[in-house]
Design a protein around this nucleic acid. Sequence first.
DNA 1: TCATCATATGTTCATTTCTTCATATATTCA
DNA 2: TGAATATATGAAGAAATGAACATATGATGA
Lengths: 119, 119
Amino acid sequence: MDAVGDKTSEYLMAHDEIVKKVIDEQPDDEILYDLAELFKVFGDSTRIKILYALSVSELCVGDIAQLLNLSQSSVSHQLRILKDAKLVRFRREGKVVFYALDDDHVRTIISMGMEHVEE
Amino acid sequence: MDAVGDKTSEYLMAHDEIVKKVIDEQPDDEILYDLAELFKVFGDSTRIKILYALSVSELCVGDIAQLLNLSQSSVSHQLRILKDAKLVRFRREGKVVFYALDDDHVRTIISMGMEHVEE
DNA sequence: TCATCATATGTTCATTTCTTCATATATTCA
DNA sequence: TGAATATATGAAGAAATGAACATATGATGA
């Protein structure tokens, strides 16, 4: 879209004041991008299930796979995504790796979503 | 995965009690699916931008397209997705259609996400 | 060190998603 | 009614995504 300049001048700015205000209050693109990336992580039912399970208790990979009836590989892949998004942390105990929610934001975000879904 | 029964009997249930508790507290698959679908809607930067803009003020389609530098078609498509998810509502005023956030959950969800992103 | 168990990672394929372009619908006004 | 404007929708192609499979890594104990 190179013709933005043109468009702007053509356009009558129906609601000039408001548009300016909105532009002012809009955060940087980069932040909004990160925000979308964060929600994208929540936007998959396998990951939501994992997060929900972890909201009850720390769990190891095998237990997650078993209780959610998923393959080990799938769980591991998804845990990596959750880890990259800093939604979960882990600790190793011998051969076993335990995952847990990284902070309470996760719980809050999920329960806000729940409120919307359940109404 | 039909071999679940087998797997279960093989598996030693390393953390039996906890696993049971987690299974107990896990909501129905359907609800978790809906929850993921909801977050999926937030998981796109175009839609996040639109939602953010609407969190400041009700806006018509043309203004959204202009201020976010997006095509009219793209905005309209995304607004449909937001409408289907009940995140926005609209009212018609002549040729112009105004969109607004449908409820305050949207604001809350976004600001919870922001807190996580900004730390 | 080797076998075994738990987890992680790389790759491929099918599916989904987003954008764009073209076109349709709806409303206003002459 | 017909032109102009605002918005909506359908279709197609490119890119992103998730699941499955094979294999690699890391840790334990014989």
